[in-house]
Each structure stands twice: as C-alpha cells, then as structure tokens.
Amino acid sequence: MSGKIDVLSHIKSIYKNTNVLIISATALLLLLLISYLRHIDNNLGKSEIISGYTLFFLILLLMSFRIRKYLSVIPLFKVQYWTKIHLIAGISGVLIFFVHTEVLWPKGLYEQIMTSLFYMTVLSGLLGYIMQRIFPARLTDSGIEIIFERIPDQLAEIRKEVESIILDCTDNTKSDTLARHYLETLDWYFMRPRFFLNHIRGGRQGQHWIVHQFTSVKRYLNNAEIEYLNKLLMHAHSKNQVDFHYALQGCMKAWLFFHIPVAIALLIFVLWHLLLINIYSV
C-alpha cells in the first residue's frame, strides 16, 4: 500500500515539474499534427501546405523571442519560460521540417540554400543551448563573478597593479631582473586575455604557463625579489580567472552573432518560399 502511495506521489512530483508538462503537451500536439497530416495525405490532399504554414508560424514564434528582449519593460512572462518555449519550438520545428520536406537535402538551389540556413540555425541554436547549460556552472565553479563588459577594466586594473609591483621591486631591490622578465615575457600575458580556446575546452594551459614562467625566473631572484614575484603570481592567477570568464562569457555572446543573422536570412528565404508556393503551386 505504501509502495503504491510512493508511486503516486512520485508521479505527482513529476507532473509538478513544468518542463515535463510542457514537453508532454508539445509531444501530444505534434502527434496530433502528424496524424492530421497523414489523414490529409491519405485523402490525396496537400498536407505540405498545413505543415509548411505550421513551420512558418513556429519560425515566427522563435523569432518573437528576440522581440521579447526588446520589450523587457512589458511583463510578458519570465525570459526563462521564453527560453523553454524557444527551445521546444525549435526542436518541434526540426521535426515538422522533415515532415514538410520529406528529404534531408532538397534538389533545387534556393531550397538547398534555405535548408542550409535552417540546419545552420538549428545547429547553432543547439550549440548555444549546450553552452548556456554548461558554461554558467563552470563559471560559478571558478569562484568569482565578473561582468563581461567590465573585463577590459579588470584587466587594466590588474595590469596597473602588476606594473606598480614591478616598479616597487626595482626601486626597493635595485635589481631589474624581474622588470626585464616582465617586459620580455609577462607583459604579453597581462596585455589582454590569453589562452581563449584552451579555457573553452576546460584546459589549464594558462596556469601551466604561469607556473613555468614564474619558476624559470625564480632561480635568478633574491629573497626580496621573490616576495614581489609571489605578489605577481597572485595577480597572474587572478588574470587567468578573468581570462577564463572572458572566454566562456564571450562564447555565450558570440554564438548569437551567427545564430541570429542566419535565422534572419532563413526568415527572408522562408518568406520568398511562401511567395513562390502561392504563385506557382497553390
């Protein structure tokens, strides 16, 4: 008896989950749509007209996500819901696309261009979604929070502090070993974000570089200089964290530079396709 209650409560808990509800509703709608299209096909009707217009309105729904961002002052549900709708509409769009075209790769040039744009939009969207799911967690794990737009200022600030340490070191120790090492090697590192691709991959090349550069110079330094070197090392690690944020946050912004223009190109081709279909076939 208790087992039965556990199962029921488990099911209830599942259905309390909004995601499951949305996905279930979408799957049901898609099943109904596909069976309706089959019914039209079996009656020698033109199911592609229905599937085509459904796809068109789905694309418009997907596009409206961008408009939602412009209208942030209007309370049109949370962006979180819009993101979910965007994702589910996108995946549904892929399914309806194949139902509509019945082929992976069409024959005509303009349809091939349109299909390419569709695939590129979908793949870039999926890539973006994957990044949005993975990167924030990795950024949180880094232990710091940095606003992307302030990264240049952060880097400039670190660089300023590092150069200040070098000057202090030269003044107080009367040795330019560390200063020369900075000019010849470390300056390159502090100048701008480095190891971009390695950070995306989750590598530790930046840290290895720091350890290597600091270890190699350490043997030429006296104790006083080593104290300054240790201060530099702490700033270098901080800079490495900033680089990490720059790489990941940059990717989360950069993919939209591909996704949105391609989606707009797709929308224009879809409108062209709609016009041609109405002129030539319907």
Partner: peptide, 29 residues
C-alpha cells in the same frame, strides 16, 4: 545579412531568360 539576402534574391530572381523571373532562385529542383 538581411539586406544581402534580399539583394541576392532580387538580383538572381531577375536573371534568366529575359522574362521577369529567372529560374535560378525559384527552381525547387
């Protein structure tokens, strides 16, 4: 991107056999 796509459609759709619409960007296969 949008302007380029519209320009390409406008340009290529008008290239053809001297009639209004060419076939390059309307031929579905």
């Amino acid at each position: 991107t949008g302007v380029i796509v519209i320009a390409v459609i406008g340009l290529y759709a008008n290239i053809g056999d001297g009639k209004y619409v060419g076939t390059l960007l309307i031929d579905p296969g």
